[in-house]
Design a protein around this nucleic acid. Structure first.
Lengths: 146, 146
DNA sequence: CTAATGTCTCTAGCAACTATAGCTTCAAGG
DNA sequence: CCTTGAAGCTATAGTTGCTAGAGACATTAG
């Protein structure tokens, strides 16, 4: 049995994050020692590793919640899991496309900066006037990190 | 003079967002009409457009605050503005690199899913075990949206 | 045995908004 | 002139995924 600190270390997750996952129900309530400290076994370790890995791949906690409940029912079809992964892939692809456009615009901006005074600064100028932009990099809709 | 609604429409920014920007000091306190409604002139319109455009390019509100205060002093060197833009570019590039790795991993995951049951699901399996991954897509450090 | 570290709960804070509630003001139609 | 509906006002709370702090108890190394 591991203490919360050891568990966190083993999974690369900070201690308060583990408690947070328990609080929001992603992890079940942990067993407690005589002194009221949380204790974890192998199953918890695997579950936390799963969560961590999915987070690293950019899945939201909501998606992870779904994936976990799917993985708890191994006899069912994996269509739902597949759909979640595909949605995440689509999300990543759309963010990639947007970031690529942003990168081009920022590069243009930075390259054109001649290093004079603010009055001639290309950076400020471009920011002031979207029509100076080459690409259309408007915020399409919702966006989430990672 | 524009009402807050018209201003928002003209800049593509929602009304509560404008009030929020005022609240955090990104926009100055607006003039008020006899009936206590906010009124905006051309300068506010330009300032808001600047903010919106910079947000679209992924700059944080903090960076925008700096850029705005720079643009208020047109006689100074543009080195600071250049540095902010370069930092943003670096940020975007690092996020691009990470997302590219994620995309590859997710594609592998999705392609390998044969559509059977959860027990054989490649998606769940890969999430359970990072060693099945081709790339090292661990969370490097801080991350911000956009 | 003591001191340092770890853990406990609870609360508040971060970015950058978004949503809700309950009010007032404004513009247009009858 | 009056009403009605949209738009505006303030203030507060919620969102996501944590992170940080306070103050108390548990455990472990020396």
């Amino acid at each position: 049995m591991l203490t919360i600190g050891k568990l966190g270390e083993s999974a690369g997750v900070k201690v308060p994050t583990i408690r947070y996952y328990e609080q929001i129900g992603l992890l079940p309530e942990a067993e407690r020692s005589a002194g009221n400290q949380r204790l974890y076994g192998r199953k918890s370790q695997e579950r936390l590793a799963f969560i961590r890995h999915a987070r690293d791949l950019g899945f939201t906690l909501e998606a992870i919640r779904d994936l976990l409940s799917l993985s708890d029912r191994p006899d069912q079809s994996c269509a739902a899991a597949d759909a979640i992964a595909k949605a995440q892939l689509a999300e990543v692809e759309s963010r990639l496309a947007r970031l690529t456009a942003l990168k081009a615009e920022l590069e243009r901006m930075v390259v054109q900066c001649a290093g004079g005074s603010i009055a001639d600064c290309r950076v400020i100028e471009v920011l002031s006037d979207h029509s100076l932009c080459a690409t259309d990099h408007r915020h399409p809709e919702s966006e989430v990190p990672s």
